[in-house]
Design a protein around this nucleic acid. Structure first.
Lengths: 166, 166
DNA sequence: TCACGTCAGTTCCGTTTTAGAACCAATGGA
DNA sequence: TCCATTGGTTCTAAAACGGAACTGACGTGA
């Protein structure tokens, strides 16, 4: 499979990865969530090659994840800001952060703690069902064909074994 | 920054990405969650080059995300299964899936629906605070230095503006 | 006015990574 | 013996990446 075909696959994971599934994009977005907005600042903080950065920012802008907002005229300068679509990637960042905290940290603990403003506790994210509120684990959901399936069918492995809970 | 340095950065996101942050790994893991376990099956379903697949499976096994389990002796054959560490990536998959459903789907809707076994509803994941249970949005948490920080400090952008809520 | 600095890129070149295809090795079966 | 199955490895060419230099529009200070 070629990389350019990914955004046309009938799979939301593949389509998401067509935007954030490369080496640098999520690190660029991490900086965005930390309120970094300017080209130079991305470059200095990430140590990314400039043309790769230019390419990622353009792709993210084209995809509607970032938008260019002018912050000075003469000379015209623009900064990159998260759109609503971009802000919506927060759960993805949070999931990766929590997984890294749990499985990739030093013995002493994670390098950065996140504190929930509302309740004041150091916290991580728990995934719950949007309908009943229960915690969602790895085998708590089944898959079925959706309206955008385009005459496709579910991958055999998803159905062959009845997708049993583990 | 070189790619091999990523797993030593004092950032859980960077460390997570050192494992799942490339073009193919999350697609391989998608298949794992769909109970695909054999080399040939991964190859056929993904259309991935065989040596790239071999490389990714080895890296995931070395990282403890997958394990090789023998399923036949003479000739010895092994299949790849998710470990606990691997199963713990489910929230990451779910976040990407939900984001793709919301922002990348066709007008008709997403290609695949997920139904919560326990309550029977088609559902998506909601991120909630592990301590107080409230829903977590993009600007609901502050960051602070953690025990594994190694004398580092928070990135300036995270503190410079007091990390205000938006 | 003229050198210098800032910001946001673009261009060039050499190294890595990837895609696609062919090849290899252990074993079992006809 | 020849073929099929499974799980890879090796080869070549194309694409992506890292690092450094260059460009261009403008401001500043001497």
């Amino acid at each position: 499979m070629r990389w350019e075909e990914l955004d046309r696959q009938p799979c939301s994971l593949a389509r998401s990865l067509s935007i954030v599934g490369d080496r640098w994009t999520l690190l660029v977005l991490r900086e965005c969530f930390l309120r970094v907005r300017r080209f130079e600042e991305f470059e200095q903080r990430l140590g990314i090659a400039r043309h790769v950065l230019a390419d990622r920012l353009k792709k993210l802008t084209d995809a509607g994840v970032l938008e260019k907002v002018p912050y000075r005229e003469r000379p015209r300068r623009e900064e990159y800001r998260l759109t609503e679509k971009g802000l919506d990637l927060y759960p993805v960042m949070l999931s990766l952060l929590d997984w890294g905290d749990k499985w990739m940290a030093e013995p002493e603990g994670p390098p950065v703690l996140r504190r929930h403003k509302a309740c004041g506790h150091v916290a991580h994210a728990v995934h719950t069902c949007s309908e009943c509120g229960e915690v969602l684990g790895a085998r708590d959901m089944t898959v079925e064909i959706g309206p955008g399936a385009k005459g496709g069918e579910l991958p055999p492995a998803a159905t062959a074994k009845g997708n049993p809970s583990k």
